[in-house]
Design a protein around this nucleic acid. Structure first.
Lengths: 252, 252
DNA sequence: GCATGTTTTGCACGTTCATGCAAGAAGCCG
DNA sequence: CGGCTTCTTGCATGAACGTGCAAAACATGC
């Protein structure tokens, strides 16, 4: 059994039942409790669950996320990226915005006096934009995935198919010149692909840790990226590669 | 049973019933009363309840109520209605819940250990239920109406049409025996009608001020109501009329 | 092919934590 | 006041915890 597989199964269990017991997982996987504790510690560190005595509970999504290890330490960078990304938007445009913490930061950075049409499958982003009076908000419904904090599945794909956007603000899990934009979950990748297909341009804002990494599911090729927003500290060599593929680089 | 889970369930119980008894909780969870007292002490310290002799009571019901200008003055009544409505639910059921402050209160009163499938077009209700691990949540997307805080329109209708529910928790704008259930906005009424059509039973929880009033758009006849949850102070004559139409009356 | 480094896992250690029990203090009711 | 319940505090116990370490599995480089 691969460590990563075990992690995934624990995440599934958390999503399905809301909580897990260390001892129960240990006997279920046939490993020691120490190993399970290590797993839980790592998942908690990644913000995927909350560690409690005896096991772990699913971390509440955005509602009560003053915690969130990775949300806080990278919050400042994400805010900077968000501001730079919002600067690319023009009034009257139609956008797709999918889920992800960076995209949530972008939604939060959208000024209230910018009139846009926004279609999103992320509940958090929809909530953020719900009181922007000038934004025409389209919620892309479907089965809600707690991992992603967004809707996925056939209903979501059907909703996306009926729309077209000027820009797609794509929350990327991994970004590599040769492998392009990639995602961790199949259902997530499907929605991203549909949004990409129905958009005139793709905008990606990523923190440096996502650069030159790849996740299993392919979403779009590097040549489809129109705007790439990255931190100032990003390796110039990598950025040059993307630039050769036609992307416009924006440093935040 | 994880300590954290117990705390969570006590909080749900507090939200649903308004008060808890130490001894009752102890036998319910199978722990000593000392443990329960410790739990209650911690919850009280965190400001999540107020400790009283023999148990604890929910601290200000406003604590968890976020927005909504008129939500405050009738909050307590709505919470009572919500508790009584949740008591009608059974595990494994599929529900439609549409928008409205009363329905939002009902969603908040749903305990975390109740597994349900819930389809809603209200963004607030979706957010509330998004961290209930046992609830299969289906977001009914479409054009977001800021006035309603929910999605309406053709896309929403199409999403509803694909589903069927055991119960429809209908947020009523006006309720009158002869005119039935009515709504203020055409688009809202359309969604309610679609949900009513695809549900085996209709549940309505209303404050007294909605009784014997009517809004322009007709949603469903009085004879289609299966459960009617009202305040104790509701005029018996009106309730008798609904009872004659086949509704089961629940006083909160 | 062998040595080296890395990762994963299990075990032993001392520590922390949740729980229940006992004893005394405090609150409630007649 | 007296009898009762409920509460708090201190303490003991066992379970869960983190850490350091070593063995094993695996990859990497010469």
């Amino acid at each position: 059994m691969l460590t990563d597989q075990r992690h995934q199964l624990i995440r599934d269990r958390l999503a399905a039942e809301g909580s897990v017991l260390a001892g129960e997982l240990a006997s279920h996987f046939g490993v020691s409790e120490d190993t399970v504790r290590r797993d839980l510690r790592e998942l908690a560190k990644a913000g995927l669950c909350r560690r409690v005595y005896g096991g772990a509970v699913a971390s509440a999504p955005f509602a009560t996320v003053p915690v969130g290890q990775r949300a806080s330490h990278a919050a400042e960078e994400k805010t900077r990226l968000a501001r730079a990304t919002v600067a690319l938007l023009a009034r009257g445009q139609t956008l797709f915005i999918d889920s992800g913490t960076t995209n949530a930061a972008i939604a939060r950075a959208i000024p209230r006096d910018l009139d846009l049409t926004v279609a999103t499958n992320s509940l958090e982003i929809a909530s953020v934009l719900s009181d922007h009076a000038l934004i025409e908000l389209i919620v892309l419904g479907g089965r809600f995935d707690r991992h992603l904090g967004a809707c996925v599945g056939a209903d979501t794909l059907a909703a996306v198919a009926q729309l077209g956007a000027d820009l797609f603000i794509l929350g990327s899990c991994g970004l590599d010149v040769s492998r392009g934009v990639t995602a961790f979950v199949s259902a997530e990748a499907e929605v991203k692909r549909a949004m990409a297909r129905n958009s005139a341009g793709i905008v990606i804002a990523v923190t440096s840790d996502k650069l030159a990494t790849a996740a299993p599911y392919r979403v779009a090729g590097a040549e489809t990226i129109r705007h790439l927003v990255v931190e100032k500290t990003a390796p110039p060599a990598i950025l040059a590669d993307f630039e050769r593929q036609g992307a416009e680089i924006h440093l935040a």
